[in-house]
Amino acid sequence: MLSPQRKQAIKDGLAAFGLAIAVHLGFVLILVVGTWQWEPFEHKPVPVRVTLVDRGPTAVEQPEAVDDAMEAAERERQRQEELERQREEEAERQRQAELEQQREEEEAERRRQEQLEQQRREEEQRRQEEAERRRQEDEEARRQAEEEQRQLERERREREEARERELEELRRQREQAQSEREEQQRRLDELSERREREAEEQAAEEEAERLRLAEEQAAADARRATLREEYIATLRELVRRSWLRPPTTQPGVRCNVRVLQAPNGGIIDATIVSPCNADDATRRSIIAAVNRVGEFPTQGYEDVFERQITFEFYYDG
C-alpha cells in the first residue's frame, strides 16, 4: 500500500505530465498553422538532353512500265461505238421532255384559275366576319363602361363606410388607451409609494445595524485601547522598578524606549528613540533597566502583543 505522500507525489507528477503534453500539443498546433502555407517540395527528375540526327531520305523502288499497242486500238473502237449509242439516246430523251413540258403547262393554268376563285371566296367570308366582330366589340365596350361605372360607385361607398368605421375604431382605441394609461399611472404611483416606504424602512434598519456594529467596534476598540494602555503601563512599571537612577538624573525625564521582543516576551533588544530629553548616563541606565527585566509578560496581553513595541518612560522625581 502506498503512503498518502507517495500517492500525492504520483498525482502531482501525472498532472505535470498532462500539462507538459498540453504545452507541446499547443506548440505543434502553432507549428501546423504556421507552416500551412508552405509549398511542398517536388522531387523533379533532372531533364535529360537528347539529340536527334537526320540521315536524309532512303531510296525508293521504280515501277515497271508496260506498253501494248493492240490493246489500245481495241479500246479506241469500243469508245467510238459507245459515243454513237449515247447520241441516239439523247435525241429520244429530248422528244419525251418536250411532250412532258406541254402537259405540265396546261395543268398549271388550270390550278391558277382554281386558286383565284378560292381566294375571292375567302376574302368575302373574312369581310363578313370582321363586321360581325366589330359589332360585338362595340357592344362589349359599352357593357364594360357601364359595369365600371357601377363598380366605381360601389367602391366609393365602401371607402366612405370604411373610413367611418376606422374613425369610430380610432376613437374607441384612444379612449381605451386613455383609461389604460390612467390605470397604469395609478398602479405605478402605488408601487413607487410602496417602494419608497420599504426603502425608508430598510434604510432605517440598516442605519440601526450600522450604529450597532459601530458601537460594537468602538467598544472592542476601546477594550483593546484600554488593554494596550494597561500593557504599556505594566511594562513601564516593570522597567521603573528595576531602574537604578543615576545621581545626575533630573526630574521631568521623558524618553521613548523601543523594545524588540520574542514571542514568549523575552527581550531581544532595547533602544532609546527620540524624543528623549535625558542625558547619556540616564539613557544607559534605562536600557540597563529594560535588560534587567529580561522578560515582559505576555499572559493576558496576546491581543495587543507587538513584536516591536515603543513606550514612553518618564520620571518626575
Binding site: 502531482d12 507528477g13 498532472a15 505535470a16 505530465f17 500539462l19 507538459a20 503534453i21 504545452v23 507541446h24
Partner: peptide
C-alpha cells in the same frame, strides 16, 4: 529532444507548484 522537452516541462510544472 522531444523527450527532453516534455520532461523539462514536467519538471517546470512540478517545481513551480
Amino acid at each position: 529532444l522531444a523527450a527532453a522537452s516534455i520532461t523539462s516541462w514536467m519538471v517546470i510544472f512540478r517545481k513551480r507548484q
